[in-house]
């Protein structure tokens, strides 16, 4: 399982999984965009590079997801897939994301922000799991 949605009264909460931190970040991005639409239906017409640095993994994940929301609002970018991602032990991230103009698809809601509420990245038996709540 890449990710699953959890109950949250007002907004959207998900848990994303991965054997490594890189995969958890990728699956978190997919979980977030699939709240709005279907990433699997999105064509590959746009490519963006993302480079970030933070003080820990939680903050790095928050910044990464926020960067994607920023691309959605300013570049009309809707994600299909994270095609490359590299995260160092010093909390530096380099990623390449591909997708299309969101206007070509039926999106159902807006995400205002990625919150810190309940955010955690945990070590599990199979790797890692991240929990994220986004404000809708």
């Amino acid at each position: 399982m890449k990710y699953k949605y959890l109950e949250h009264t007002a907004d959207a909460k998900f848990q994303a999984f991965g054997s490594g931190i890189d995969e958890v970040f990728t699956n978190s991005a997919l979980a977030m965009f699939n709240i709005l639409g279907k990433t699997s239906e999105v064509k590959i017409k746009k490519t963006y590079k993302i480079k970030l640095k933070a003080r820990n993994y939680e903050r790095l994940l928050l910044d990464f997801l926020e960067e994607l929301l920023f691309l959605l609002d300013t570049e009309d970018f809707f994600l299909h897939e994270v095609i490359k991602i590299k995260i160092s032990k010093k909390f530096e991230l380099e990623a390449v994301v591909v997708g299309d103009d969101y206007k070509n698809y039926d999106l159902k809601s807006d995400i205002k922000a990625v919150t810190y509420s309940d955010m955690k990245i945990e070590k599990t038996k199979k790797g890692y799991a991240a929990t994220v709540v986004v404000d809708i």
């Binding site: 949605y5 109950e7 949250h8 009264t9 007002a10 907004d11 959207a12 809601s109 809708i136």
Partner: peptide, 8 residues
């Protein structure tokens, strides 16, 4: 005020 999640 919401009482049911969007998911539900």
């Amino acid at each position: 005020g919401r009482m049911m999640s969007r998911h539900e």
